[in-house]
Simulated scan of single mutants.
Amino acid sequence: MKKIFLAIVLCLGTTLIFAQQQDTFKGFKLGLTAHPTFGYIKSDIQGVDGDGLRAGFTYGLLGDFYFAQNYAFSTALKLTTINGQTKETATNEQKIYKLQYIEIPATVKLCTSETNGLKFFGQFGLGNAFNVRAKQDIKGLSSEPVQTDVDIYKNISFYRASLIIGAGAEFAAGEKTKLAGGLTFDNGFTDIKSGSGTLKSSYIGLTLAVYF
C-alpha cells in the first residue's frame, strides 16, 4: 500500500513540474499554500465525545488544470496536520490526537469571470489523505498531562477519505501572479483509527495561496 502511495506522489509531482514548464500549456496554474486548520473529531463510541476544535497547519503545492475558461480540475500535494480531541464522559479523561497526513485532493473548481483583476470561485470534491505520523496526549481529571506524544501510528488508519467544499476569491497581483483566499470545509467520512467504534476527523481551513 505504501509503495503504491509513493508512486502516486512521484507521478503527481512529475506531472505538476512538467505542466508548469510547458509554455504552450496555458490552462495550467501552479501555486503554493500555507495556512492554519481547525480540526475536530466526531465519535460514535458510547461514552466518548468530541471535545472542541484544535489548531493545525497545512502547506504544499497546488495545481489547477483548466479545461474551460471558468472550470478547472484542482489538485494538490500538501502536508497537513489534523488535530482533534475526545473526552470520556465517565472518567473525564481527555485524549488529544495529533495526526499528520500527506493530502492529494481531487476537486472541481468553478470560477466567475474576472472583473478588475478579481474573480470568485467555489470548489467541491474528494479528499485523499495518507497518514505519516500520529501522536497522542492524554490528560486526566486535573487537566494535567498524564502522557504526552505517545506514538499511536499503528492504531491509526493509513488512508483517510473526505468530502471537500470551499469558496474564495482570487486577485491578480501582477501579469501572472494571483493571490487567493477563502474557506475550506474538509468533512472526513472514514474511521481514523483501527479497532471497534468509529472516530471521524474533519477540519476547517483558512485558505491562503499564491499562484505563479
Rank of each mutant, 00 (worst) to 15 (best):
E170I: 02
L208A: 13
S143E: 15
K95G: 08
N155Y: 08
Q22G: 04
L62G: 04
A173K: 02
N131L: 15
Y153M: 11
F171T: 06
T24R: 11
G52P: 10
L61R: 02
C11N: 10
L6D: 08
A161L: 13
G188K: 05
C11R: 01
T148Q: 15
D44M: 03
L53M: 12
A180V: 05
A172F: 02
K176M: 10
F130H: 03
L199A: 04
L183M: 09
V146S: 10
I156E: 05
G140L: 09
L141T: 07
G122R: 03
G174N: 04
G84A: 08
F67K: 01
Q21H: 12
N83P: 04
T148Y: 04
S74L: 08
L99M: 08
T112H: 00
I204P: 04
A209F: 07
K95C: 05
E144A: 14
F57Y: 15
I204Y: 11
D186L: 04
S196Y: 11
Y66L: 07
V210P: 00
T115E: 05
T207P: 01
F67M: 03
K109E: 05
F171L: 07
S201P: 00
Y71L: 15
Y101H: 01
A169E: 04
I138K: 14
N92K: 15
A167H: 06
K78A: 11
Y40F: 15
Q123G: 01
T91D: 06
D151W: 09
V108D: 00
D151M: 06
T80V: 10
N128T: 09
T14K: 02
L179P: 00
T207E: 12
P105L: 08
N92G: 09
T81E: 14
G205W: 04
Y101C: 03
G181V: 08
Y97Q: 04
A106R: 00
L208F: 14
L126W: 11
L32K: 00
Q94C: 06
N70M: 01
F57K: 07
A169R: 00
A209S: 14
P145M: 13
A134N: 05
G31F: 01
Y66K: 12
K98Q: 10
V146C: 06
Y203R: 01
